[in-house]
Write a protein that binds this DNA or RNA. Structure first.
Lengths: 295, 295
DNA sequence: CTGCGCTCATACCTGACAGGTATCACAGGA
DNA sequence: TCCTGTGATACCTGTCAGGTATGAGCGCAG
C-alpha cells in the first residue's frame, strides 16, 4: 500500500486529458515508453484498470474518471501548498504582520467593486499588502484552487464555489449586447428564446475550462475582440448589467428578462487561517449594503 | 520550480508534528540523516526556511506552519484520490450502477437517524450498497477528508464542515451527565458556570484530533469508560440530549440551558460527482421534516 | 493481400538520487 | 569535565526513473 506520488498523478492526469500516450509524454517533456510503464505500474499498485487501450487510442474507465477528478484536486492542493508556503516565506521573522494577499479578479469585470474593496481595506489598521492578479475569462477559480491566489472575486454561474467559503457581494441581471443597427436593438426587453436562434446573429462563445463549447457563434478570447465582432454586426453576447460600462456606440444593450442573474462572490479556501484574509473578508462583507441594497 | 512530491510532504508533516527529527524518522520507518537531508532540500527548493533548529529541538517558522496546514490538506487529497479510485475499481464494466458508498458515523451516536436514513435509502430504486464505517470519537471528519468515506454524519461543534457540502439533519440541546447521587443531580437545570469548576467533579476530557486538551478531568477514550467513571462519581460530562438513550441507572441527566446546541449534519466532499451519493443526500434531506420540524 | 503508419508495450541500459552507516559538532546537565 | 542527546555531514550503494531501440497489433491505402 505504497503512497501515491505527485509525479504519478501528474503523469496520469496528462494521459487522461490527452487520451494519447505520445502527446501526453511530449507535454510532460519525457519519452513515451517510461510514461507507459509508469501508468502500468500505477494501475498495478492501485489494483485497478484506469485506461482502456485499443489501437486507435485510449479511453478512461470508471475508475480512471474518478482518479482524474480526485487527482486534479490533489495536484491543485499540492501546488497550492508549495505556492502558499513560498509566498509566506518573506514573512518569516522581520515583521509578523507583513503578510501579502493575492486576490484574483477577472480583468475589467467587477472593477468598481474591487476598487471600493481595496480602498476600504487599505483604511484598515492592520491591512496587508494586496496584489491584484487579473486573469483571463474564467481562470480565477483555478487560481484559487492551486494557490496562485488567496482570495478571488468569482462570478457565480461561471465559477463553482465548491470547496470554498464565500460571501455574495452583488447580484445583477443580464443584458443582451447586440449591434446598434440590428432590429433586436429596438426591443425594450428580450427573452432567451428571442435570441438563442437568430440566424444572422449567433451568440459568441468563449472558453470554459480552456475549451470552447460547440455552437454556431464565433470564438472570442477577450472583451475587445468581442466588442469588435458585435460592432461589426457579426455576433451578440449575453453579459451582466455591469458590462454597460464598456459598451461602444455601435452597441445596444437590451435587458434579458429570463436569464439567470449573475452574482459576484468573494471566495477563499475553506480551510484558510490567515488573519489578513479574514480582515479583508470582513471589510468586503461591510460593503454589501452599499452594493446590494436588496437584502 | 520542481513540483512538490508527496514523499517530501509526508516527511515534512512528520517532522512538523513531532518537532523532532529522530522521532519523525522512526515514525516514517527510516533513518534520521536522510530525513534531515530531505527537509533541507525541500527548504532549498522552496527557497524558504521552514524550521528553526536549535540544540534542544525544532520549531516551526511562519512558512512552516503554512506548509503544515496546506501539506496536510494536500496529503489528504492525495490519499483520497488513491482510496476512491481503488474503491471504484470493482465498478469497472460489470454493472455501471454497482457503486458502493461508505458512510462514516460515530459509533452509537445518531443511531436512529442513521437507521432511518439507511432504511429510506434502501427503498430507493437506484440504491447503491452502503457500507457503514463506525469510527472513534472524532474521526469522521478525517475519514471524509482522506477518502476512507464518501459521506459522513458530522456533529457540528466537534467537526468542521470547511470544504464540505452539507445539510443539517437535526439539532439538539445538551445535558450534563452527573453521578445520580451527586448534589448536582437534584437540579432541574444547570448553566455552564455551574459545572465548569466543581472541585469534586471535574469534566472528563476526550481526544480532539488525537490529543487531549489540558484540564483537571480524567482522560477517556470511549463511552463505556466514560459511563463507568461517571457512575463511580469521579467525573461528569456534557453530552447531547440523545445520549440519554445509553445512560445507566447510576447516571442523572440535567439540561444545560446555556450550552451551544449540537447539530448533526450529513456532509460530503464538495466536488463529488457520484450519482449514488446525490441520491443518498436527497433521501437524507427528505428526512429532515421528521427530525427537525422547525424549518 | 501487403506494406506502411500509427498506436502502445517490451527490452535493456545508465545515471541520479533516496536511503543506509558512521561520524561530527555543539549545547546542556551531572 | 565527560556524558547524553540533538541535528548535520561524509560517504557508499541499490533502486528505479527515464532514455533509446525495437516489437507487436491493428487500420488503411494501394
Amino acid at each position: 500500500m505504497e503512497a501515491l506520488e505527485t509525479r504519478e498523478l501528474r503523469y496520469f492526469v496528462a494521459v487522461a486529458e490527452e487520451l494519447h500516450f505520445g502527446r501526453a509524454a511530449e507535454r510532460l517533456g519525457m519519452a513515451q515508453p517510461p510514461l507507459s510503464r509508469a501508468i502500468q505500474k500505477l494501475e498495478r499498485r492501485l489494483g485497478v484498470c484506469l485506461l482502456e487501450r485499443d489501437r486507435r487510442g485510449v479511453r478512461l474507465t470508471g475508475a480512471g474518471q474518478v482518479l482524474l477528478h480526485e487527482g486534479r484536486a490533489a495536484l491543485d492542493a499540492t501546488a497550492a501548498a508549495a505556492r502558499r508556503t513560498r509566498r509566506s516565506g518573506g514573512t518569516d521573522r522581520p515583521d509578523a504582520s507583513r503578510e501579502r494577499l493575492v486576490i484574483a479578479v477577472k480583468a475589467a469585470a467587477s472593477h468598481d467593486l474591487l476598487r471600493r474593496l481595496l480602498d476600504a481595506y487599505a483604511a484598515e489598521p492592520d491591512a496587508a499588502e494586496v496584489e491584484v492578479l487579473a486573469g483571463g475569462f474564467n481562470e480565477q477559480e483555478q487560481m484559487l484552487r492551486d494557490g496562485r491566489a488567496d482570495v478571488a472575486l468569482l462570478i457565480v454561474p461561471f465559477h463553482s464555489l465548491a470547496g470554498f467559503d464565500s460571501e455574495e457581494l452583488s447580484t445583477e441581471g443580464r443584458i443582451a449586447v447586440v449591434p446598434a443597427r440590428h432590429p433586436l436593438a429596438a426591443r425594450d426587453a428580450l427573452s432567451m428564446a428571442d435570441i438563442s436562434d437568430v440566424p444572422d446573429l449567433p451568440i459568441a462563445r468563449w472558453p470554459r475550462h480552456g475549451t470552447y463549447a460547440p455552437g454556431p457563434g464565433p470564438e472570442v478570447r477577450d472583451h475587445t475582440q468581442l466588442a469588435q465582432l458585435i460592432a461589426l454586426g457579426r455576433t451578440m453576447a449575453v453579459l451582466p448589467d455591469s458590462a454597460r460600462t464598456w459598451l461602444w456606440h455601435e452597441h445596444a444593450a437590451v435587458p434579458l428578462i429570463d436569464a439567470p442573474p449573475v452574482s459576484t462572490h468573494i471566495a477563499w479556501p475553506a480551510h484558510s487561517r490567515s488573519l489578513a484574509l479574514a480582515s479583508l473578508i470582513r471589510t468586503a462583507t461591510r460593503l454589501i449594503p452599499d452594493t446590494a441594497p436588496t437584502h
